[in-house]
Amino acid sequence: MVWDWLPVYFEQLLGGLWVTLQLVVICAGFGMAAAIPIGLVQVTGPKWLANIALGFCTVIRGTPLLIQLWLIYYGLGSVFPSIPGIRESVFWPYLRAAYPYAVFAFSLSVAGYVGEVMRGAFAGVPKGELEAAHAMGMGPFTVLRRVWLPRALQNVFPTLAGELVLTLKATPLAATITIQELFGVGTQIRQDTYRVYEPLLLIAGIYIVLTGIIVLVMRYFENRIPRPASV
């Protein structure tokens, strides 16, 4: 084992770790925000909207994330420049960067997987509770906000924690579209130093620690959710 490269790349590794954390938090946030309506419309209808949501989840869950990422980065990326004038527009600095494409792709992925989870979660809330809320005089949005969504989240919280861990472990794919996150830095160390195992072991260790932190934090929140007496 040779670790003499570690001090040289320490700062780069920290930078990579920061990018990885950013990706996880931002994509989980966007993905979750999209997943709630995607899950909800599949339970409430209208039918055509439910079908679109179902189709979306099927495509996202049915294709490798790497292909989605490359389709979005290289596919969309080659469509945009053909739009006249786009290179002079104020959006171009963002459209040509890699980061927005990664955020978009990972967010879609989270939305697809969690959307399916949320569909089951919304469907699993007992009808009687929703009817009771109605009977109390709550409007449909108040029912959603005060009863339906909290009860649904309560049921699937451990599953969501698992999805967050999976999102973390999907982020190394960003290195394939030039984003220097943790794995990308590890790859560079391997190619610079010709050492294979040590950088990989270090990166793997960091991911385990990150996963552990996610699990602990999510468990903390899980325990703070009041459980209904009947469960």
Partner: peptide, 19 residues
């Protein structure tokens, strides 16, 4: 300076795409 490309054709793609 973007020197994070894993393959020769990948930076060529991004050159064509204007990135």
């Amino acid at each position: 300076i973007k020197v994070t490309y894993q393959a020769f054709d990948e930076h060529n793609n991004d050159l064509v795409a204007g990135r």
